[in-house]
Simulated scan of single mutants.
Amino acid sequence: MTITQEDDLDALKAIGRIVANTLQSMADAIEPGITTAELDSIGAALLEREDAVSAPRSTYGFPGATCISVNEEIAHGIPGPRTIRAGDLVNIDVSASRDGVFADTGASFGCGPLRPTLDRLCRDGRKARQVGIAQVRAGRPLAGIGRAVGAFADKRGYTLIRNLASHGIGRALHEYPEEIATWPSRDRRRIDRGLVMTVEPFLSTGGLWADQGEDGWTLFAAPSAPVVQYEHTVVATERGAVVVTLPG
Results as ranks from 00 to 15, higher is better:
4 T>F: 11
8 D>R: 05
11 A>F: 07
12 L>R: 02
15 I>A: 03
16 G>R: 03
16 G>P: 05
17 R>A: 11
18 I>R: 06
19 V>A: 10
24 Q>Y: 15
24 Q>F: 15
26 M>A: 01
35 T>M: 01
39 L>C: 03
40 D>V: 04
40 D>F: 02
41 S>G: 10
44 A>V: 13
46 L>A: 08
48 E>Q: 15
50 E>P: 02
52 A>H: 04
53 V>F: 04
55 A>C: 10
58 S>H: 05
60 Y>M: 09
60 Y>A: 11
62 F>M: 01
63 P>L: 08
64 G>C: 02
67 C>N: 11
67 C>K: 11
71 N>H: 06
71 N>C: 10
71 N>Q: 08
76 H>W: 13
77 G>I: 00
77 G>P: 00
80 G>N: 12
83 T>L: 12
84 I>V: 12
84 I>L: 08
85 R>H: 07
85 R>P: 01
86 A>Y: 03
87 G>W: 00
88 D>W: 10
89 L>H: 00
89 L>W: 01
90 V>E: 07
92 I>T: 07
95 S>R: 08
96 A>E: 06
97 S>G: 11
101 V>M: 09
101 V>N: 02
103 A>V: 05
105 T>W: 01
106 G>H: 09
108 S>M: 07
108 S>E: 11
109 F>S: 04
111 C>M: 05
112 G>F: 14
113 P>T: 15
115 R>G: 09
116 P>R: 04
120 R>P: 11
120 R>F: 09
120 R>W: 08
122 C>Y: 00
124 D>T: 13
125 G>H: 00
129 R>A: 06
131 V>C: 01
133 I>G: 10
134 A>Y: 00
136 V>T: 04
140 R>Q: 14
140 R>D: 15
141 P>S: 00
141 P>I: 00
142 L>Q: 11
142 L>S: 10
144 G>N: 03
145 I>P: 03
147 R>G: 08
148 A>W: 04
148 A>K: 02
149 V>Q: 05
150 G>H: 02
155 K>G: 11
156 R>N: 14
160 L>C: 01
162 R>F: 07
162 R>C: 14
165 A>L: 12
166 S>M: 03
169 I>W: 02
171 R>V: 13
171 R>E: 15
173 L>Y: 10
173 L>R: 10
173 L>H: 12
174 H>M: 13
175 E>F: 05
176 Y>R: 02
176 Y>Q: 06
180 I>V: 15
181 A>C: 15
183 W>N: 10
186 R>Y: 13
187 D>L: 06
189 R>F: 01
191 I>S: 02
194 G>W: 07
197 M>T: 14
197 M>S: 08
197 M>I: 11
198 T>Y: 08
202 F>Y: 14
204 S>R: 03
205 T>K: 04
207 G>D: 08
209 W>S: 12
209 W>A: 12
213 G>E: 08
214 E>R: 08
217 W>P: 09
219 L>T: 07
219 L>N: 09
220 F>I: 01
224 S>W: 06
228 V>D: 02
228 V>F: 02
229 Q>K: 13
230 Y>P: 07
231 E>D: 10
231 E>G: 13
236 A>D: 02
241 A>G: 06
241 A>F: 02
242 V>G: 00
243 V>R: 01
246 L>T: 15
248 G>D: 13
